[in-house]
Structure formats: structure tokens, C-alpha cells
Amino acid sequence: MTITQLQYVLAVAEHQNFTLAAEKCFVTQPTLSMQIQKLEDELDILIFDRSKKPIQLTEIGKKIVEQARNIVNESGRIKDIVDQQKGFIGGEFRIGIIPTVMPTLLPMFLNNFIKRYPKVVLKIEEQNTETLIQKLQDGHLDAAIAATPLLNESIKEKVLYYEPFVAYVPQNHRLYRNSKIDTSDLTMKDILLLEDGHCFREGVINLCNASKDYNEEHFQLESGSFETLIKLANEGLGMTLLPYLHTLDLNPEYKQYLHHFNEPSPAREVSIIYHKSELKLHLIEALREVIMGVVRGAIAFHNVKIISPVSKK
């Protein structure tokens, strides 16, 4: 049994196709198939049911894949241990960021990080929280940036900053003349939300749940971007809530419609998250230090109340 064979097994399990798995592993399909066949012969079992389309794992195959994932991930971390011992900060670092954080945070820290750690090759992708957690657990990401707490035992969290919610209230809205607003002023009947799958959406719902009964029927419109929500609000279709950093680059003519909350301000906790077995802690800490340094000057809020990004059941 070899680690290479286990890597081939994981690739087929993920793609459910021998040809595609071979392409992803940069080997020929016969080579990959032969190595998996050798492993099955050695173990005297079938890992895959080849009679099904797409290819499916057998029951014993599911257990083997789970263990193979642990072995391959741990073997890949041997170099991480050596790098950490030597104090070397370099190599490939795969990070995911949620969509409501990526557009504002990435431009703030990326250039600084690249200049400070030129030997690090950052591979960045934008995904929702559920996908990020799965990729961390599968070993496809080294770390991620997401709203927390996530209440996931396999994931560790290190707080980067607290970002207040800010209300965007157009001139024709009932709350426009309020200098500041309170969470008790909010009602789901006229709040425009991001579409399902965004943790910021869940945060808004949880915020309103603290003071009002929530009913799914109250939704009027949902959108995939804050820009669309702002345009809809300007058309008189309601108000919306924005993350504080998003308001910094808002069109100047729209800033008059921003309303802050009474303290403690409802806020989201944004953290760098990683799997509990992750060993690239020196890289994680380097990234965290850079981000905290650049954000510290942009967010000066201290008296905040953290709103959970996890859906309330």
C-alpha cells in the first residue's frame, strides 16, 4: 500500500470517474486504474462499484476513503512540520473567503501580505461557509475567513475583527429620520435580504429574531449582492443591512442613508478558521497578524454584540 495509491482512491471518490480522476492526478487513466486495482487485490476487497454510473464507493470503500483522507493529509504535513521548525514562511497556502468578506477585506491585506512574505504562494477562492468547512475537512484548503462562531468541533477559530451591521435606510422609509436605530425597530416585513446560502443573511435573520417573530412569508425580495439590495432600497422596496467595511466605499450620495445602531452595536465576528489538525500554524498566524494590522485602523468599534451566523432552528 502506498500514499500514491491512496491519493488515486481519493481522486476517484471525489470525481466518481476514473478518467477525470487521472487528469486531476496528472497520470494516465490505465496507470491510475492499475494502482487502484493493485490496492484492492492487496486488501482483497472492492473499493469501488464499477457497475454503477457514476462510480460509487462500496460500504467498505467508504471507510477506506475516510481513513485514506486522514493518512494523505497527515503525510502532506510532514514538510509543514519541518518548515515550522526552521521558521520558514513560504510555499503554497490555500485559503477560502466568504463572498460578503472577500470584496472588502482582500484588497486591504493582499498587497501587504505579498510584500511581507514573498515566498508564500497564496491560492484564494470565494465560497460560502458550508463549502469552506467541507473543504477544510477534506484537506482541500489550509484555512478560510468566515463569520463565526460556527459551533463546529473539527474547526478552530481565531478572531480577526468585529464588524458592525449598518442599516441602509432610504429617504422614504419610516426609520429615515431616526439619527440612530435600535434592533427593536427592525421588522422582517421590509428588510431586503441576500439570497439563501449567505451567512450574513442568517445573521440578519437572527438579529431580527431577537426582537420580532420571524415568518418566512415576510420575505419580499432576495438578491446575491449588496449592490442590488441598495438599488432595490433606493426604489422604495424596503431597507437593508450592510457590513461596516462595505459602507466605506459606498457612493458618497448614498452615505446619507446610512444609520448606525445604538450601542452595543450588532456585529459579526470575522475569524480565520482551520481544521483542528492543521499544521501550517506559522502561516496562519502570519496572515492573521497582517489582516489584524490593516483592519485595526478601519474599524474602531469596541462596544458590540456578536450576532451568530448560524441559522437558529
Rank of each mutant, 00 (worst) to 15 (best):
V27E: 09
T31I: 07
K276W: 00
M1P: 14
Q37L: 13
Q5H: 06
S225V: 03
A210W: 00
F165G: 05
S75Y: 06
Q127V: 03
L221D: 07
V204T: 13
E285L: 10
H173P: 09
N206H: 10
P107I: 01
K255I: 08
V290S: 07
L39G: 01
A167G: 10
E216I: 14
V72R: 05
D49H: 12
L141Q: 08
F93Y: 14
F219S: 09
Y214R: 02
S271Q: 08
I291D: 08
M188C: 09
E153G: 01
R268Y: 00
G236E: 04
D80N: 06
L229W: 08
V27Q: 09
M188P: 02
F109D: 00
K79C: 03
I55M: 05
Y162K: 15
S184Y: 05
R177A: 12
L194F: 01
P170F: 05
D83R: 06
I3N: 00
G96F: 01
K38A: 14
H275N: 14
I98P: 01
L281H: 05
I60T: 14
L39K: 06
G87Q: 03
C25M: 15
V295W: 04
Q56P: 05
E40F: 02
Q35D: 04
T228V: 12
G76W: 01
R268F: 11
E157K: 10
T100L: 04
E130Y: 09
Q256E: 14
V295A: 08
N172S: 12
E202C: 09
L106F: 14
N178F: 06
G91E: 02
A68N: 11
M34F: 13
I81V: 15
I114G: 02
D190R: 12
I3D: 00
R288A: 15
G236M: 07
G91V: 08
N234C: 03
K53D: 04
E66K: 14
L20I: 14
L245K: 06
L241E: 10
Q29D: 06
L39H: 00
